[in-house]
Design a binder for these strands. Structure first.
Lengths: 237, 237
DNA sequence: TTAATTATATGATATTAGTCAGATATTTAA
DNA sequence: TTAAATATCTGACTAATATCATATAATTAA
């Protein structure tokens, strides 16, 4: 399923500029580069499972990964979609806990694995790097607070509209005045992001289409009216 | 409203053993001690508001503080109840962002304020301390993931049962085979923790009482049947 | 103490969203 | 290519929970 690719050095990595590694000094980049492992993954592959022990961190070079928890009712709550430049698993590592979530490739990906010791040593040798990692963790907490508040205080319609806008921001491709979400998600996965039933997503997408807010082309969603969605999402920005 | 108390040194602080400061070396304890400020707060007082700039961190010596976000519908989502030994505001500080939430005293409290520079210097001078803070941030992320998943995948009844069990764990006083939650929360605040309407909390509490799971004495809740609540919460532990 | 305010409680109703069932479309595997 | 499996869609129904209204109790202020 997964395959090792030519191990391009971090110094030449095209996604590094998007990542926490972006300003690391030469020496540390080399140390990490020497110990990392670039692996190609196909859609559907699991990167790690909730409850298992983290042995290092993952750094996404390309592709998209969903981070999710499986609820007691069997449904997936998607916490986050991670892409190019994002780090995965460093919270579990720094928290000295097992993974609190699972992760699965949803768009073919190339991902580097950096062993725990190498990553931790980099942090300890470079407090500026440590600060950036802490900053990222802290930011994540604020994001989660926002998600929790939306989940409890907003309707499914509002949340779906908001999710579409966010997907547009992260994966949108402009064209003909519209914005095409260039990411293949099943209705069930969209439901997992919103935190609702698959049928509800299907119904609401039909409704949004009828109201000329979006266009549907199979699994692809094209946003036609961002303002309209923003109004619906109760999120004016 | 608030008053300065005799500025007891951190070295003698009774709540330090519960906090991230617990294993700090003597020299740093003194540095912090020299710059901190112990202030007494009454129920209802605001410690800080969402959107404002953090100037330091708060360390709770005694009392209880609610950390919450105000949703666009005006309702409060309570993120967390903080007590003795808990740190507040360090995520915003390390995230170099304004506060992502507000905090209000709900049980008269004594709280130390440690200025930003003093706290950051301690982190940079002591990487073990920095690691503990990062560990705490990381743990918090896992907790928030769990809360989000519960919010989207569980019913209000399940969530209320679970919240009562948690309040019992944190503020419970055993007696007569029962567990009294020794914390005054309005029904509205409980609704804010669960993420529901006040009337729903009132109704469900009445139902739990009818089913002999709890006892109600004004605002105080006595848990009579932890197993029953655990079963109801769909959380078997 | 009394009045005013606020919190709690309960009923009635409306709305939202979940579940179940069946039809069609799409994807995958033989 | 065809069959099987899976995903999407739609309708009908149900259940959960929010909202609104009103009554009572508790708390606060005059």
């Amino acid at each position: 399923m997964s395959s090792h690719s030519p191990n391009i050095p971090c110094a030449l990595c095209s996604s590094r500029k998007f990542s926490l590694f972006s300003d690391l000094p030469e020496a540390q980049i080399c140390a990490i580069s020497d110990h990392k492992n670039l692996i190609s993954h196909r859609r559907g592959q699991i990167l790690y499972y909730e409850g298992t022990k983290p042995l290092g961190i993952f750094c996404i070079n390309s592709g998209v990964v969903k981070i999710y928890k499986t609820a007691s009712n069997g449904k997936e709550q998607i916490i986050h979609l991670a892409q190019k430049g994002d780090f995965l698993g460093y919270a579990a590592l720094l928290g000295e806990e097992n993974y609190s979530n699972s992760s699965m490739i949803i768009e073919d990906a190339k991902i580097c694995f950096v062993p725990k010791e190498v990553f931790i040593n980099s942090l300890l040798q470079n407090s500026e790097f440590f600060r950036r990692v802490a900053k990222s963790l802290s930011h994540e907490i604020g994001v989660m607070e926002e998600k929790l508040t939306n989940a409890t205080q907003k309707s499914i319609r509002e949340r779906l509209a908001y999710v579409l806008l966010q997907l547009g921001n992260s994966y949108g491709v402009e064209g003909g005045g519209n914005q095409r979400i260039d990411l293949t998600l099943s209705r069930e996965e969209i439901a997992g992001i919103v935190g609702t039933a698959t049928e509800s997503v299907i119904r609401l997408l039909s409704e949004f289409k009828k109201d000329n807010l979006i266009e549907l082309e199979g699994k692809k969603i094209i946003i036609k009216d961002r303002r309209g969605l923003a109004r619906l999402s109760d999120f004016y920005a």
